[in-house]
């Protein structure tokens, strides 16, 4: 009897002593486990699969770097890569356009809150719906038809034109992205330091010089976040391509994200290894941005501590 109380006492004191050290790990356990299994491990697993020749069913054959070597000669890979670049560059327009809209709407007139919400609307809606809306917008026998007729472009279908289809999709994709950037900047404008602006105005700063020297530096956090989400958004162009063109015509609208999916999981063949190699390229590109973002966060953490 006395022995057992001794033990419980010891146990609780051990717990008391180590509670501070162990609690974080107990709290981290479920989240960390799920994240390791579903996110971290798959990254390394994919990198390994990219060294295999594998259809997902029969035994995999280790082929070294030959998937990557094949990529170097793959015309569609280069088309996809170029399209990713087009997405990235054109998507960047969402940042200044969003800023412009935010400045335009940063007023207090009757109903402005509702107006701002309505401007933000496209971001809330699924990209699938946006894609459907635009593909039928572009359809020459659809909404845009009457206007095309007036322009003398009867029956012109941008999504069927291999030279311009990608731009048609990007235009649709940038629409919700502008809304996102706008809301980031509206929040930024809301939190401006009024004293600095007034002081600047006292010193005679006006219009563009006021904007450039006083407003823009204060909007830096919003700009940073806008650029980060826009870059990531541009590389996640899968939904739009899948809905609007499925990579066609003749693969001209493919992007790495969609091309990877097509190679690994569609009727064109189940080439898991080759698909993983494409994914690895996309991952490497993204990794630069991730590391840049983390570096920025690390700097601000150090300042904060």
């Amino acid at each position: 009897m006395p022995d057992s109380t001794q033990i419980t006492y010891r146990k609780s004191s051990w717990w008391k002593l180590n509670q501070q050290r162990l609690t974080p790990w107990i709290f981290l356990f479920p989240g960390l486990l799920l994240f390791l299994v579903y996110v971290i491990w798959p990254i390394f697993n994919s990198l390994y699969i990219s060294l295999l020749q594998w259809d997902g069913l029969s035994p995999a054959i280790y082929v070294g770097l030959s998937n990557y070597i094949e990529l170097l000669d793959d015309e569609y890979f280069y088309i996809s890569l170029m399209n990713n670049l087009k997405w990235l560059i054109l998507f960047m327009l969402a940042v200044p356009i969003g800023l412009g809209l935010a400045i335009f709407l940063n007023q207090t007139i009757f109903g402005i809150r509702l107006i701002k919400s309505l401007f933000f609307f496209p971001f809330v809606i699924s990209q699938v719906v946006i894609g459907i809306i635009f593909s039928w917008f572009y359809n020459p026998r659809g909404v845009i038809g009457p206007f095309l007729d007036k322009l003398g472009l009867s029956n012109y279908a941008i999504l069927a034109d291999e030279n311009f289809a990608t731009y048609g999709i990007i235009f649709a994709g940038i629409y919700p992205q502008i809304a996102y950037c706008m809301i980031l900047y509206l929040t930024g404008l809301n939190n401006l330091n009024t004293d600095q602006i007034e002081a600047g105005r006292m010193d005679g700063a006006k219009g563009f010089s006021l904007f450039k020297n006083i407003i823009l530096p204060q909007l830096k956090p919003a700009t940073f976040l806008a650029i980060v989400v826009t870059v990531i958004g541009s590389l996640r162009s899968f939904d739009m391509v899948a809905i609007m063109t499925q990579g066609g015509p003749y693969g001209s609208t493919n992007v790495l994200a969609y091309y990877m999916f097509e190679t690994a999981l569609s009727e064109y063949g189940y080439r898991m290894g080759y698909g993983s190699a494409i994914a690895a390229v996309l991952f490497t590109i993204m990794m630069f941005y991730i590391l840049f973002f983390i570096y920025r966060m690390y700097q601000s953490e150090k300042k904060g501590l």
Binding site: W41, I49, F238, L256, I290
Partner: peptide, 23 residues
């Protein structure tokens, strides 16, 4: 650990696709 969570959050879905589907 914190930065691992952040980094994982930005990863392109395609790099997870095949292993997650298999799993």
């Amino acid at each position: 650990i914190f930065f691992t969570f952040i980094a994982g959050n930005f990863v392109p879905f395609q790099i997870l696709m095949i292993p997650v589907r298999d799993l």
